[in-house]
Design a protein around this nucleic acid. Structure first.
Lengths: 255, 255
DNA sequence: GCCCCGGCAGTGGTCCGACCACTAGAATAC
DNA sequence: GTATTCTAGTGGTCGGACCACTGCCGGGGC
């Protein structure tokens, strides 16, 4: 359990937690420079850094070399980077991730149908159009695909579920980023997204959930097939080739 | 995120990640002492500690003062300790957490009905019996309540969903641990748990989901009522609405 | 013989003070 | 005006000393 001991790291965490809970620290705010802050807290800079590192690892703080340390901005992230590690450690299976995603996104779609605002419908519509326009460009298509789902999550009005979804999909893409989809699948995929959009727009929660479920089931079997063809891994724990892993733009901004 | 940069912390993380993925490191295993490990990795002990702290914050490592550092054992945890912080930061509402829990656990119950094994049924039955036996002891009752739900999560066969549920409920309890339930509610609660058990045992997924949903809806309204009565109304709801945008220099205060 | 307790060795925790690396903006050169 | 360079401020790394905790082992008391 969380010990509130003398542990310096917890002292820092609790201090900042307190500043957040009392409203003295808001997303985007900057905390004092390490040397100064450490002096004020009467602890060494090293200990302060330990605590900050802890908070940064949890996505609460955002440390920028040469600039400063800030309270994290933007949509919350829950253990986004940890899931793939935990997956490798506990041997999570691909189907389990897909199942989790299917459940989350289906309900998210239903909620979006119930609570979505006009602005969300507009955004969804635009992304669907972009998807149709890029069926021949898998890279571009993927961007709009991701955005589409992200808008739904936002429209659901539940940031916790949205964050959980983000965590899962992030881990999922982390594992599949090599298998590019074929464009004949993309056409079909776009159609399904359009159906989802229509169901949400007409506030048909049941339909939205059903179509979303169908869409994700197809995506899962499609990827399973690709994985089977390319030979290797069906598991989450496989050889991460030493490829330099340049990060794409799949996860940059919320729409 | 996964930049393979010179960043010492990432070098450590990737090194350990690699050891995990190649199977050279299993849950419960111990990593070398810091001084020795640092020498082997050709980095300073401080940097090594930064990386280990990062992994520990994500629940991948378990550091025990005076003993050693180990790969985390037991069921995976996803950002368990971070959710309450993120909640305070982004103003998560109680109803949002309950909604997330409701969705997750309903599906978990349905899955448990489909995939549960005899051992799970037995465990569930035992917990139900214990709940009936402790309706006059809220503290004891809560233990079996938690265990009951945990067994269901286990029976679902999806550790990811189980971990997500654990994260949510953990944050939820963190916020409510003061409002003790009244025994007349407990009797009713035990009845519902028994119904859930029966539905799962008879492999009636639909019924299991429905009853679980009903149970959690009741729990939610019960807690909302208690919170309203005692006025202590948890969480950042207040600061979220009433925070008067005091922009400007940040972090200059001594809390 | 058995048990308690103190010491000891090993390990993580904290501290210091110096220096490196990066960023943004100011000062300068063109 | 624009491009370049310089500089102050900030986080990142280092190593080396010392503190604090844990587990164990051996000696002393029973």
């Amino acid at each position: 359990m969380s010990k509130n001991d003398t542990h310096m790291t917890m002292r820092v965490v609790n201090h900042i937690r307190n500043m957040i809970e009392t409203g003295g620290l808001q997303p985007g705010d900057r905390i004092p420079p390490e040397r100064e802050f450490a002096r004020k807290l009467r602890i060494s800079r090293a200990s302060l850094r330990t605590g900050i590192g802890y908070l940064a690892a949890m996505g609460v703080m955002d440390v920028r070399h040469g600039v400063g340390t800030f309270v994290a901005e933007g949509p919350p992230e829950i253990g986004k980077s940890s899931l793939s590690l935990l997956g490798a450690l506990h041997g999570f299976q691909s189907w389990q991730m897909f199942e989790a995603r299917r459940i989350l996104e289906s309900e998210l779609a239903a909620l979006a149908a119930e609570r979505g605002k006009e602005q969300h419908f507009t955004a969804l519509s635009e992304e669907v159009a972009e998807m149709y326009a890029t069926v021949d460009n898998p890279i571009e298509y993927l961007i709009h695909d991701v955005r589409f789902h992200r808008v739904i999550a936002q429209a659901s009005g539940n940031p916790i579920l949205a964050a959980l979804m983000e965590t899962i999909t992030s881990a999922l893409y982390d594992e599949r980023r090599k298998t590019a989809e074929r464009s004949r699948d993309l056409r079909q995929s776009a159609d399904l997204h359009r159906e989802i959009y229509k169901a949400i727009r007409s506030r048909n929660a049941h339909e939205a959930r059903a179509v979303m479920e169908r869409h994700l089931a197809m995506a899962q079997s499609a990827q399973a097939q690709e994985a089977a063809e390319s030979g290797t891994n069906g598991h989450a724990a496989a050889s991460h080739a030493a490829a330099p892993a340049k990060r794409g733009k799949a996860g940059e901004k919320s729409v």
